[in-house]
Simulated scan of single mutants.
Amino acid sequence: MSADHPPPSPILPSQPSPPPSPLPAWRIDLDRLRAALDGAARGWILDAVEETGSTNADLTLASRAAPWGDAGTLRLAYRQTAGRGRQGRPWQGQAGLTFSVALPLPLAPSQLSGLSLAVGLALAEALADCDARLGAAVGLKWPNDLQIDGRKLAGILIESVPAGPQRVWAVIGIGLNLVRDAQMEAALGRELAGVAEYLPALDPTTLLAAVLNRLAAMRAAFIAGGFAPMAPRWSARDAFRDQPVRLLHDGQVQAEGLARGVDGDGHLLLETAAGLERISSGEVSLRAVPAGAGGAPA
């Protein structure tokens, strides 16, 4: 077996072969995907399955017994039956790329501050690599979403698995809408965005390769210097910069003010009547203040 085709990952649970079925146009060609990877991403382990409960759960479980090394692992599923979004919300997302990557980071858990923002930035820059117009349209929503014109394009969920002193696996779940899903829009009660709005001749294999290449580069940069060097690039794509916003928890307003970007640790800078506050992501959600509503400092 050649070096370009490494053996199956020892950290992934075995899966029965899926029954033969016609492949939709957006299915991933793993051989072509590997050929499109460069740099550190060329050594990553790639895995795709027809269906699983949750790719994040798969990699979280598998990482506990994983041998330590430098290679990341991709786990992609065409359908997730127990997918989870932020704050434990159920999420399945059949209209897009739904996958997780496990990244070995020689860092302490306390050094992961800002990682979700770094991942979001990598994803946005990967979309720009594919199409400049798409890249220009994408905005980042603190702490872990991508959007176009206020419509959600992608979400990120990160879980960590300690692996010893100064060692942690970051298991990063990503859902990226390829097309707008009317059924999901109806269920969520909100409009969504899709990559196909800008890339009608969408090639998901090329798109996924761009994402993995950017994630590999992000991993190296994050290990070297954390999120701080990336903060200016993130702020340049901040969809809510200098806008009045509310922070909600379980539907209740926790704080209001003007969004003033983020600091080097990935905290939201919120200008309130009491001054500039630094907000950690925690369990709060950011929302725009409706037009005509108060709440922003004078």
Rank of each mutant, 00 (worst) to 15 (best):
A122V: 11
S21K: 10
R287K: 03
A216M: 14
L117P: 04
Q252V: 10
D29G: 13
S9G: 01
A163W: 00
P8F: 05
G225Y: 04
G251I: 02
D242R: 02
G114A: 06
A25T: 15
P90Y: 07
Q243M: 08
P244D: 09
L212F: 09
V262C: 09
G175N: 11
E185F: 04
E185C: 15
S110D: 09
R79S: 13
V171M: 08
A182M: 12
G120V: 10
N213L: 11
G295S: 02
R233G: 01
G150S: 01
L268S: 00
D131S: 15
H267N: 09
L176W: 13
A128H: 09
P90W: 04
A210R: 15
R86G: 09
A182T: 13
D203T: 10
A40W: 00
Q183R: 06
P7I: 04
S280G: 11
P20G: 11
L140E: 05
A209T: 14
P90F: 02
P290W: 04
L146H: 11
P90S: 09
Q243I: 02
A25F: 07
I172W: 02
L115I: 03
L199M: 15
A187C: 03
S21L: 10
A216L: 14
S281I: 08
L248Y: 00
P18I: 05
P19F: 00
P24E: 02
D238K: 02
A102S: 08
G135T: 13
R32A: 15
Q92G: 10
E50K: 06
L248K: 03
Q243H: 00
S21Y: 05
Q254T: 12
D4V: 10
G120H: 00
R32V: 13
A296I: 07
P24A: 05
A3F: 07
H5Q: 12
L247W: 00
P104V: 04
S100R: 02
P22V: 14
G69W: 07
H267F: 02
V171P: 12
H249C: 10
Q252H: 03
I28N: 15
N213D: 14
A201R: 15
A57R: 06
A35E: 12
R75K: 01
V245Q: 07
E283H: 06
P67K: 00
L199V: 14
R32W: 03
L23W: 09
N144P: 12
W26R: 15
A288G: 11
I279M: 05
A154M: 12
L105Y: 01
L157G: 10
P109Y: 00
D29N: 15
A154I: 15
N177W: 08
D47A: 12
C130S: 15
T52G: 08
P24W: 00
E51P: 03
V195N: 11
G135F: 01
L59I: 02
I279C: 12
A136K: 09
Q147K: 06
Q111G: 13
G292D: 09
Q254Y: 01
G251P: 11
H5D: 13
L199E: 13
L207F: 14
L134A: 13
A163H: 04
P200E: 08
